[in-house]
């Protein structure tokens, strides 16, 4: 620390000592110029990243006719947003809100159950010495390498045999079996939960279950928040698995539901009778909104989760 301030004052002396006043002003002007150029570049890049989001905000206020006849950034004659929401709500007796509810059910159920199941398994692998411990951990790490899309189609066949196709459980169970969650919590528990603490709990006469719920669980709460958010976002965004596992549109989550609307664009009868474009656009906006709002609110936890999750991998 002392070294740090020392070098800073040395630098300041150097600057005022060597540079004449005029030269100093030129350097300042140059800094201001560079600053503006950098900020301008950042603004242009930000515009690129915001472009589709700005567009959908505007597009959701247009009706079908305006969508196809006006430019992407031209504003509508009047706001049609609530009209579009009403179209969405009345489309097939409100199936859209069913999809919304399904997405919420899948996301919350998977997030809660992943946290419980993974923390139990992670605790066993981190703090118990038993035969088969290394073998199981290796299996968990190896399965991290298997792309999720590989097992999706065989999963469909297996679930068919168990009558799990077209059920909530059929979508939720495979997503709880999260090797990442177990890996993440095993590492975390090993680093953070002291063995002495567990010893103390045992000496006090706490059962294994009680030690886990009242001692370990509260200590690992930060990691659980991270895992909860990661699994919730991952499930809300998941498309391939529910696409393969579900036929009944009443069970669709939002991405699969909206995709089913998209595919109607190519069937002329549907495209003629249903205002597909406003439905898809408004439906997409309402699907994205919770993620974006949640992201802004929880950005600290999410960023920690992203960096911890992959840097440690």
């Amino acid at each position: 620390m002392a070294q740090h301030t020392g070098s800073a004052t040395a630098q300041m002396k150097d600057r005022t000592g060597v540079l004449p006043q005029a030269n100093y002003r030129a350097v300042r002007a140059k800094t201001v110029a560079t600053q503006s150029v950098v900020t301008l570049i950042l603004f242009i890049l930000a515009f690129y990243f915001m472009l589709p989001i700005i567009w959908i905000l505007i597009a959701s206020t247009k009706n079908a006719k305006e969508l196809s006849s006006t430019g992407i950034f031209s504003l509508p004659s009047r706001l049609h947003f609530f009209e579009n929401v009403r179209l969405l709500t009345t489309y097939q007796h409100g199936v859209y809100w069913m999809w919304f509810l399904n997405s919420a059910i899948y996301a919350v159920a998977v997030a809660v159950l992943t946290c419980i199941v993974s923390s139990m398994a992670g605790y066993a692998l981190a703090k118990y010495d038993f035969r088969g411990r290394n073998g199981i951990f290796l299996l968990v790490i190896a399965s991290l390498m298997i792309p999720g899309t590989v097992t999706a189609i065989p999963l469909f066949i297996v679930e068919k045999a168990f009558n799990l196709v077209d059920t909530y459980a059929g979508v939720i169970f495979p997503l709880i079996a999260s090797p990442f969650g177990v890996y993440f919590l095993r590492i975390y528990i090993q680093d953070v939960v002291p063995n002495d603490l567990l010893d103390a709990a045992r000496v006090d006469g706490a059962s294994a279950a009680r030690t886990f719920w009242s001692v370990v669980f509260p200590v690992i709460r930060p990691a659980l928040v991270t895992l909860f958010l990661i699994s919730m976002v991952g499930t809300w965004n998941n498309f391939f698995l529910p696409l393969v596992l579900l036929n009944n549109q009443d069970l669709y989550p939002l991405p699969v539901g909206i995709e089913s609307l998209m595919s109607l664009i190519n069937t002329p009868e549907a495209a003629m009778t249903v205002p597909l474009y406003p439905l898809i656009i408004t439906g997409s906006l309402i699907s994205i909104a919770p993620m974006i709002i949640g992201f802004i609110l929880f950005r600290k936890q999410i960023v920690t989760g992203l960096t911890q999750g992959s840097v440690k991998l």
């Binding site: 589709p52 989001i53 976002v233 965004n237 498309f239 699907s287 994205i288 993620m291 992201f295």
Partner: peptide, 13 residues
């Protein structure tokens, strides 16, 4: 935040 926000948008959307 603005650069990261698209990450919050599901791939389908």
């Amino acid at each position: 935040l603005l650069f990261l926000l698209p990450y919050a948008v599901p791939g389908v959307f």
